[in-house]
C-alpha cells in the first residue's frame, strides 16, 4: 500500500492500463437517450479517451467525476461534437442519440447541438442584453413565429432557470452585468430556450461561490423533470447531491459506473475507492 502510494505517476498509469479489464458496474440502462460505445479520442499524438462506453438514460442526471486531466470534459464535449472546433482532435467509436449515430458523416451538427445543449465551466454570456442572450437560440433557429412568442419563450426559459424574478425589470441590460451565479443561470436559460433533449454541463459551478452553487444544484434537480443532464464535476459532494448515476474517469478510461449512492457508499474498483476516500485527486 505504502509502496503504491509513493510510486511515480508514470508507473501508476502503466499499472492501470496493464491491469484494466473493462469498466466495472452496469453501464447500460433501459431505453437510453444516448449510448456511447468504444469511444476513443486523440489530440494530435495524445490518446485522451480510451475505449469508453456508457449509456445515458432519460430524465436522469449522470455525473462524471475524476481527477483533473482524466478526460471527463473531453468525453462530455464528444456528446455534442464540440470537439469539432479543435483541429487536432480525432474521435472514433460510436455515439448514438435516440438511435442515430451523431458522428455519421451525413448528420448535421447544427440540429444536433440544438438537441444537445451545453453549459460551460465559466459563465459566458454574450455581450448583449439579458433578453438577447436568451432569445439568441430561438432567433437563429427560427423557433418563434412572432415577437410575442419570442417574449413568451424568453420568459419561460428565464422562469425555468429560476432567474425571472431577479431580472424581469432589467431585461434590456447587458448580461455581463449580472453576478457570477446569475450569469451561469442565464447561460442555462439560454440553453433551455432552444428546448434541447440533453444538457451537458461542464463543471458549471467551479467558478461560483457556495450560495450560487446551491441554487444551480437546486435548478439541476428541477430540470431533470424535462431534460437529460450530463454533468462533469470536480466535487464529489456535488455529484452525490445532484446525480442519479455516476461514472468515475481515470487517465482516459471509465473505471466504474453505477448508481450514485452505491458508488459513494460501496465502490467496487480500488481506484474509485482511493479517489472517493481522498487518497488522490
Amino acid at each position: 500500500m505504502i509502496v503504491e502510494k509513493t510510486a511515480p505517476a508514470e508507473d501508476a498509469s502503466q499499472v492501470i492500463h496493464a491491469n484494466f479489464g473493462g469498466t466495472v458496474g452496469d453501464l447500460t440502462v433501459a431505453e437510453p437517450r444516448m449510448t456511447a460505445r468504444n469511444v476513443n479520442v486523440h489530440y494530435a499524438d495524445k490518446h485522451a479517451i480510451i475505449d469508453v462506453s456508457l449509456d445515458i438514460g432519460r430524465h436522469e442526471v449522470v455525473a462524471l467525476i475524476g481527477p483533473s486531466g482524466c478526460g471527463k470534459s473531453t468525453f462530455l464535449r464528444c456528446l455534442n461534437r464540440m470537439n469539432d472546433t479543435i483541429d487536432s482532435c480525432r474521435v472514433s467509436g460510436e455515439i448514438m442519440l435516440d438511435g442515430q449515430d451523431i458522428y455519421d458523416k451525413k448528420l448535421d451538427v447544427v440540429p444536433l447541438r440544438a438537441r444537445v445543449g451545453m453549459v460551460f465551466q465559466k459563465p459566458n454570456p454574450f455581450p448583449k442584453s439579458i433578453y438577447d442572450n436568451v432569445a439568441y437560440g430561438p432567433r437563429i433557429h427560427g423557433l418563434a413565429e412572432d415577437q410575442s412568442a419570442l417574449d413568451e419563450m424568453v420568459e419561460d426559459s428565464l422562469r425555468r432557470a429560476g432567474l425571472w424574478d431577479e431580472v424581469k425589470d432589467r431585461l434590456q441590460q447587458p448580461g455581463t452585468g449580472l453576478s457570477g451565479g446569475q450569469q451561469q443561470r442565464l447561460c442555462i436559460a439560454r440553453t433551455i430556450a432552444v428546448s434541447p433533449e440533453v444538457i451537458l454541463m461542464d463543471e458549471p459551478c467551479s467558478a461560483l461561490d457556495p450560495i450560487a452553487t446551491a441554487k444551480i444544484e437546486e435548478l439541476i434537480d428541477e430540470l431533470r423533470q424535462n431534460f437529460t443532464i450530463v454533468i462533469v464535476t470536480h466535487s464529489m459532494q456535488q455529484a452525490a447531491r445532484v446525480s442519479q448515476r455516476t461514472g468515475y474517469f481515470h487517465l482516459g478510461r471509465l473505471i466504474e459506473v453505477g448508481k450514485t449512492d452505491e458508488i459513494f457508499t460501496n465502490p467496487q474498483h480500488k481506484l474509485t475507492e482511493d479517489y472517493i476516500t481522498g487518497r488522490f485527486g
Binding site: 460551460f120 465559466k122 439568441y136 437563429i140
Partner: peptide, 20 residues
C-alpha cells in the same frame, strides 16, 4: 468561450461570427 457558447446552441459558424 463566447464562440463555444454560440456553437453549442447550434449556431452556424457564420451566425456565430456575425452575431457574437
Amino acid at each position: 468561450a463566447l464562440r463555444d457558447a454560440s456553437l453549442a446552441l447550434g449556431a452556424t459558424h457564420s451566425e456565430t461570427i456575425r452575431q457574437v
